[in-house]
Design a binder for these strands. Sequence first.
DNA 1: AAGCATATCCGCAGGACTTGCTAGTTCGCA
DNA 2: TGCGAACTAGCAAGTCCTGCGGATATGCTT
Lengths: 138, 138
Amino acid sequence: MRSPAQLVDAFRAQGLKVTPQRQLLFRLLHDNDRHPTADTLYAQATSEMPGISLRTVYQTLTDLTAMGELDQVTFGSGPAHFDPNVADHHHAVCDVCGAITDVYVDGADQLAIDGLAGFRPDSASIVFHGSCASCART
Amino acid sequence: MRSPAQLVDAFRAQGLKVTPQRQLLFRLLHDNDRHPTADTLYAQATSEMPGISLRTVYQTLTDLTAMGELDQVTFGSGPAHFDPNVADHHHAVCDVCGAITDVYVDGADQLAIDGLAGFRPDSASIVFHGSCASCART
DNA sequence: AAGCATATCCGCAGGACTTGCTAGTTCGCA
DNA sequence: TGCGAACTAGCAAGTCCTGCGGATATGCTT
Ligand SMILES: [Mn+2]
Ligand SMILES: [Mn+2]
Ligand SMILES: [Zn+2]
Ligand SMILES: [Zn+2]
């Protein structure tokens, strides 16, 4: 995702208006590698701007996703997570604390595949489940 | 997933009762590689047994999953899919027709990983998106 | 074969997450 | 500064799934 200042320009360039609510979300998302959910962002936004509505958070996240500034990722059931890192990468989910970390997998595009007769893949996504470094104590 | 006859025994062995509704679902799921949803199964079940409730379908799917006879898989948003193939495998999703096919990936457990400092993976799941053989794209 | 204790079934209410709707407000350009 | 388009906030509604409770069927006993 681009910087808040660049997003301001990008929104104006598309005829979208730049409101305080949107700018706040630009800041909360910029360089955020926590893979937050809409609720998480809503809680953070509320502490800085009481009165902002959850609906507006969802709307802005939808807009940013449509503009390619965010990816939306889901892990089984539960709410969607929003990812300002739109580079090609994968995820590791800690089943203990829920932390989600970015993973870069070498050769993910050259995975040897059986049973895919005729299937033409456009993308592959890999999700690791396990325990993260801080939860690894057994 | 084991055969309907074996599941009858397995349910009895656990003190679970074997009802016509459950036996119907055993049959609908056995050797089913379509990755059906609860709604899909409910529709099929209703045609053979009008009056069966969606609640019972969910309940039986939950029981079978708890017994390790089914896996539950999800792809982004949308309902869960149930998979009688509990062997270690992955999935290819056709973005055109929605078909879900099983994929066996060589060396999925030895994927070279960067950025996973200290993370201990228990499992990895890979989902390919693209177009299936019959939906061959331009 | 009949009875009994208990697991199951089904319908409905409710929860989690997300999107639709709309009146009133705010933004951005002239 | 003023206007029209876009936005916000609140609530309703949609989707998928689970909790609950009375009526019922199952499996075992006698
Ligand atoms: Mn990420
Ligand atoms: Mn499968
Ligand atoms: Zn952890
Ligand atoms: Zn297809």
